[in-house]
Simulated scan of single mutants.
Amino acid sequence: MLLQSVHHVAIICSDYLRSKTFYTDVLGLEVIREVYREERDSWKLDLALGNQYIIELFSFPDPPARVSHPEAAGLRHLAFAVADIAAAVAVLQEKGVITEPIRIDPHTQQRFTFFADPDGLPLELYEVNSRL
């Protein structure tokens, strides 16, 4: 198998409009396509970051809760690269998003922090090419 790249990440949300607003208005992802699937009573929203398709946001009636703590088994978190983590954190905080303190990865010396989407999915900001 010759993998080329990650194509997308699929996220099931509990409140479609709240999550759509978070991923588009707060994080700034762009809507590629939005489809209501009547037979499933489900929305599917395809989102891009820059010119790269990245997230499928789904809604389903009454989805079961999932453990979201970053140390639980399964997907740990979704990380977004940023050039200036302090500026990115400031934008999130201006929009009411609570972030953890910025930390430094002891192996790469890069700065990072965590925050959560409306359903508690752990998200990370990871500063690339920082000079500390």
Rank of each mutant, 00 (worst) to 15 (best):
L3W: 04
L3H: 03
S5F: 11
S5V: 13
V6M: 14
H8C: 12
V9H: 07
A10T: 15
I11D: 07
I12G: 10
I12H: 14
I12V: 15
I12P: 06
I12C: 15
C13K: 11
Y16Q: 10
L17C: 09
S19P: 13
S19C: 02
T21C: 14
Y23M: 12
Y23L: 12
Y23C: 15
T24K: 05
T24W: 05
T24F: 02
G28V: 13
E30F: 05
E30N: 09
V31F: 00
V31W: 00
R33G: 00
V35C: 03
E38F: 02
E38R: 09
D41E: 09
W43P: 08
W43D: 07
D46Y: 12
L47N: 01
A48H: 07
A48Y: 12
N51Y: 08
Q52T: 10
Y53K: 05
I54H: 05
I55H: 09
L57R: 03
F58I: 12
F60K: 14
D62K: 09
S68R: 08
S68P: 01
L75Y: 07
H77Y: 05
H77A: 05
L78W: 05
A81P: 04
D84M: 12
A86R: 07
A86Q: 03
A90R: 06
L92G: 10
Q93T: 00
E94M: 05
G96Q: 04
V97E: 05
V97Q: 02
P101W: 09
R103A: 09
D105I: 00
D105C: 06
H107M: 13
H107E: 13
H107V: 14
T108A: 12
T108V: 01
T108E: 13
Q109A: 14
Q110W: 07
R111H: 08
T113A: 11
F115K: 11
G120L: 02
L121Y: 15
L123S: 00
L125Q: 04
E127F: 04
R131W: 01
L132W: 00
